[in-house]
Amino acid sequence: GFTKEQQRLGIPKDPRQWTETHVRDWVMWAVNEFSLKGVDFQKFCMNGAALCALGKDCFLELAPDFVGDILWEHLEILQKE
Rank of each mutant, 00 (worst) to 15 (best):
L62F: 06
L75P: 01
H22W: 01
Q7M: 15
F44Y: 05
D57S: 13
K56G: 01
F59G: 00
F41V: 15
H22T: 04
D65M: 13
V23I: 04
G38I: 04
M46K: 05
C52R: 03
A30L: 07
L54C: 03
F44R: 00
A30I: 07
V39D: 02
L75M: 08
D57L: 07
S35Y: 06
P15Y: 00
G68K: 03
T3A: 12
F66A: 14
C45T: 13
K37N: 12
L62P: 00
R16G: 09
K13C: 12
G48I: 00
I77R: 13
F41G: 09
F44M: 06
Q6T: 09
C52I: 12
I77P: 05
Q42M: 07
M46T: 04
Q42D: 12
Q17F: 09
W18M: 00
F41P: 15
G55C: 14
G1D: 15
H74C: 08
T19Q: 07
V23C: 03
L36R: 00
K43A: 09
W29R: 04
L78H: 03
H74T: 06
L60E: 09
H22D: 11
W29M: 03
Q7I: 15
V27K: 00
W29D: 02
N32L: 08
K37T: 13
A50L: 07
C52G: 03
G1M: 07
A50R: 11
T3S: 14
F34N: 06
W18N: 00
V67K: 05
F2G: 06
D25S: 13
N32M: 09
G68M: 01
A50S: 13
F66I: 14
R16H: 15
K37P: 12
L36A: 04
F59Y: 01
A63V: 14
N47C: 07
K43P: 06
G48T: 02
F34D: 03
F2D: 08
A30T: 14
Q7E: 15
A53M: 10
E73P: 01
C45M: 13
E61T: 14
I70N: 03
L75G: 00
L71V: 00
N47K: 07
E20P: 11
L60K: 15
A63G: 06
L75W: 10
E61F: 02
L71P: 01
A30V: 13
K37V: 13
D57R: 11
K13L: 11
K56C: 01
L36V: 06
K56V: 03
L71F: 02
L78Y: 04
V67Q: 11
Q7T: 11
W72H: 05
F34S: 04
S35C: 10
K56M: 05
L71G: 01
L75H: 01
N47F: 00
I77Y: 12
E61M: 06
W29A: 04
I70D: 04
W72C: 03
T19V: 03
D25F: 09
A30E: 12
A30R: 03
F2H: 04
K56F: 01
T21Q: 14
V27H: 01
D14N: 09
Q17K: 13
C52Y: 04
T21D: 15
W72P: 00
W72Q: 02
R24G: 09
T21K: 13
V23G: 00
S35W: 03
C52D: 02
W72K: 00
E73R: 10
D65R: 13
R24P: 00
V27C: 08
T19E: 08
F66G: 15
W26R: 01
E20F: 05
G38F: 04
Q42C: 06
T3K: 14
L9F: 07
D65Y: 12
L60D: 07
P15V: 10
E20A: 12
A53H: 07
A63P: 00
H22R: 01
K13T: 11
L78Q: 07
D57H: 11
G55E: 15
D14H: 08
Q17Y: 08
K13W: 09
K4C: 09
D40R: 06
G10S: 11
L36Y: 03
D14M: 04
P12Y: 08
R8N: 08
K37R: 10
D25W: 11
N32D: 15
F44A: 02
W29H: 04
G48M: 00
E73V: 03
D40S: 08
Q7D: 14
P15W: 02
K43G: 06
V67E: 15
G10H: 10
L54Y: 06
D25K: 14
D69N: 14
K4S: 11
L62E: 03
K43S: 08
P15L: 06
P15H: 02
G1K: 15
L51E: 00
M46N: 02
D65L: 10
G38R: 08
K4I: 15
E76G: 12
C58T: 14
A53F: 03
I11R: 09
G1V: 09
E73W: 08
H22C: 02
F34G: 04
L9W: 07
K43D: 07
H74M: 06
Q6N: 08
D25T: 12
G10T: 09
L60R: 12
I11D: 03
D65T: 15
H74V: 04
P15K: 02
L62V: 05
G55A: 14
A63K: 03
K13R: 10
G48H: 00
G10W: 05
Q7H: 12
A49T: 11
F66P: 15
A63F: 14
D40F: 02
H22V: 03
I70W: 05
T19M: 05
Q6M: 14
R8G: 09
F66N: 15
Q17L: 10
A30S: 11
V27L: 13
W26C: 03
W29L: 04
F2S: 05
L9Q: 08
V27F: 07
K37M: 08
S35F: 05
V31N: 05
G68N: 06
L9K: 08
L51D: 00
M46R: 04
H74G: 05
M46I: 08
K13D: 11
L36K: 03
R8K: 11
D57P: 09
F41K: 10
A49F: 05
M46D: 02
F2W: 11
L78K: 03
D69H: 08
G10R: 11
S35A: 11
L62S: 05
E20K: 12
R16L: 13
V27N: 02
L60F: 10
V67L: 06
Q42N: 11
A50Y: 05
F44Q: 00
R8V: 09
F2P: 05
E20G: 06
R24Y: 08
M46Q: 05
F66V: 15
A53Y: 03
K56E: 05
K43L: 05
D14Y: 05
Q42H: 11
A50K: 15
L51V: 04
Q17C: 12
R8S: 08
E76L: 10
F2Q: 04
L51S: 00
D40L: 04
A63R: 01
A49E: 14
E5H: 10
E73D: 15
I77D: 12
A30Q: 08
D57A: 11
F66E: 14
L60H: 11
E33N: 10
N32W: 05
I11M: 12
F41D: 11
T21Y: 15
R8T: 09
C58K: 13
L78A: 06
G68C: 08
C58H: 15
N47M: 01
D14R: 03
T19Y: 03
D25C: 13
G48R: 01
M46Y: 07
I70G: 02
A49I: 07
T3R: 10
K56R: 14
L71A: 00
L9S: 09
R16P: 03
L51W: 01
K56T: 01
L60N: 09
T21E: 10
A49V: 08
V67G: 13
G68T: 07
D25Q: 14
T19N: 08
F66L: 13
P64I: 01
G1W: 06
A50G: 07
W29G: 04
W29I: 02
S35D: 14
W18C: 02
D69M: 11
K37F: 07
A53G: 13
V67T: 11
L54T: 05
V27W: 03
G1T: 06
L54M: 13
V39Y: 02
T21R: 15
E61S: 13
I77K: 15
V67H: 06
L78P: 04
M28G: 11
M28I: 14
V31I: 11
E73Q: 12
T3Q: 12
F34H: 10
E61P: 07
L71D: 03
